[in-house]
Write a protein that binds this DNA or RNA. Structure first.
Lengths: 341, 341
DNA sequence: TGCTATTATGGGAGCGGTTGCAGAGACTTT
DNA sequence: AAAGTCTCTGCAACCGCTCCCATAATAGCA
């Protein structure tokens, strides 16, 4: 079943080298010869042996997708499935394959070594790596091309693809202000996470733009969990000056918790207070009321990451790529369906 | 960086063959020699080149994971993420890697070819393949070992891992009957899906066990969607004899729809009618009231599939494996927290 | 003690590709 | 017409590993 170059060569009456040139679309092959070889290859259902090619050429057409340990809990939302679809789709389109590696603490070191040293992959896509992830260091040292999903603030040698958290948050808050809300609070993500910090910056930028003084008590730090959102909203509610008339919550998960806190004290959304989220998880549309939020192009994030990485592999030594993808405001009724004022 | 066998051989003062034996844990190597080689290998941070090994030995230690097109919508629940985790975890433990292939219509044929002919993978895990999936045929013809996730009714040459749908349904319904419910209806999955048919069989078996005559009007076919569950429950409600006092719904998604239908007509769960689901999706615990359901060992499903496949690869020619994993009844308040009668 | 197992090791031929190099024609150039 | 280019092709040397086979050393046995 497994046809080899040699067989095709014999069958087409040429040398192995020539067949190889044809298969790899290299120049200096006679048109007629090329056609003949292609015909034979097709009829014999030829498929290059990846191991052999990899050994000889040093590249495998395989990208590694590393999802480090600990984020597995995030699997509860369809982020990773969508990301994976985007990645595999882009890889398929360019004749590449995807090697999956879901990190586990105990095997981490071992797997990293296998991944890097084995020469199995041409490059690595790092999905939500932690800032101090040891794999990052290893990748850099090894000189293996890689892109991160999620902006990485500390290293200037890394390439990344991310959504434009700052501008997205900016737009969302600007929308609230345009709609007439006066005192807009925010429940942030962890400050030490880039996404959390960027979204806060966007919030601040929107206030600045309208020359609104920032009231620090209206900024409460959350942790991207439902429970964290719940507690943060309680803190806002306990403010002597009140929670304001709108809250920009930096994730849908936290918005869920915030909504619960509001319901408990009998506040209605959006009549008493408006609420907006970030992520557009599936449940956002089914909340009561449906949540205004920011939709991330997760599928595209994956696709662009793969395309970028393939690009990087074929042009080694180029400077790091940094790509920010735009998001989409999804206006639902949690912030009032009409301008407020 | 990339150490080779040869280098280790030189460094340890032995031949390449001997080093290879040591690395692969083969017999006929002197204890002392073995120790010395291992030491050198360790200190040189040796990692075998997978491509070379694969080329020479004909196996790659890579398993393919195929998730055919169309099921991507199912990505909305954490089934696949969990499955993937189980698979990768088992593979890691046995020094295997996972090649991911998420099917897309247009690339399907091409990818199948690459997958099968490239010699890239030792075997394939087929996640929820359709009964007539062309890849199934291709795998059989090629003689490549594979296991399916989900029982396959038609072919006797295929290996599969599945949850024991029949017995799980049986247990669930038996539980309802023991709790004192008299007229237990069921909303089934599509009859032409194995899981749907098996769960119905389990329902029937439980009735038979208690010598309860089966009332065909209490069996309504759904389609595993929320909307399908909603409509099925409406049909039950419109029955002249009433919907019975409990409903075994064959999936949590449909149970969600059924609950909606009940709420619309003002029926209370479990006081007016009890409801049970199947799958234990995350939202089941947060429904109002929390849903009694059947928890599937999805992670284990993946792990066992990988382990079985690795087993099969190393013992070619053995007969197909069929494994059914037990489930767990998760009793919540949707069927009454105490026996009913 | 001689002769056959057994164990430990090295040699070398692949596995199926890629690629540098050389050579054969055909085609320009002066 | 001789020399220089260019295009097309084949040869052969790898890539790093596995595994069969030969050989040497040691052990087992009559």
């Amino acid at each position: 079943m497994a046809t080899t170059l040699e067989e095709i060569a014999k069958s087409a009456g040429v040398s192995r080298s020539t067949v190889s040139r044809v298969i790899n679309d290299q120049p200096n092959v006679d048109q007629e010869t090329r056609a003949r070889v292609l015909l034979v290859a097709e009829s014999l259902n030829y498929q290059p042996n990846i191991a052999a090619r990899s050994l000889a050429a040093g590249r495998t057409q395989i990208l590694g997708l590393a999802i480090p340990a600990g984020v597995s809990t995030l699997f509860a939302d369809p982020y990773f499935p969508l990301l994976i679809q985007g990645i595999t789709s882009a890889c398929n389109a360019q004749d590449h394959s995807v090697m999956l590696w879901v990190g586990e603490p105990e095997y981490e070191r071992r797997t990293i070594r296998r991944l890097l040293a084995g020469g199995l992959v041409d490059g690595v896509i790092l999905a939500s790596a932690l800032v101090d992830d040891p794999i990052l260091e290893a990748l850099l040292k090894r000189g293996l091309p890689f892109v991160m999903i999620g902006r990485h603030a500390t290293s200037d040698r890394t390439s990344y693809i991310d959504v434009d958290n700052l501008n997205s948050a900016h737009e969302m808050v600007a929308y609230l202000l345009r709609a007439g809300y006066k005192r807009v609070a925010t429940i942030t993500g962890p400050r030490n996470m880039v996404a959390g910090a960027d979204r806060l910056q966007g919030y601040l930028a929107a206030l600045r733009e309208r020359k609104i003084a920032c009231d620090p008590s209206l900024i409460v730090e959350g942790d991207f969990t439902e429970e964290g959102g719940y507690r943060a909203m309680q803190r806002l509610l306990s403010l002597p000056t009140g929670p304001g008339d709108a809250v920009f919550v930096a994730s849908d998960g936290m918005a869920l918790g915030a909504m619960r806190a509001l319901r408990e004290v009998g506040k209605r959304v959006p009549d008493d207070i408006a609420l907006t989220g970030f992520d557009d998880l599936p449940f956002a549309a089914h909340m009561d009321p449906p949540l205004t939020t920011v939709r991330q192009p997760v599928y595209r994030l994956g696709a662009v990451a793969a395309e970028t990485l393939i690009e990087m592999v074929s042009h080694p030594g180029a400077s790091p790529r940094r790509i920010l993808l735009p998001t989409e405001l999804v206006i639902r009724s949690s912030c009032g369906s009409l301008p407020h004022r």
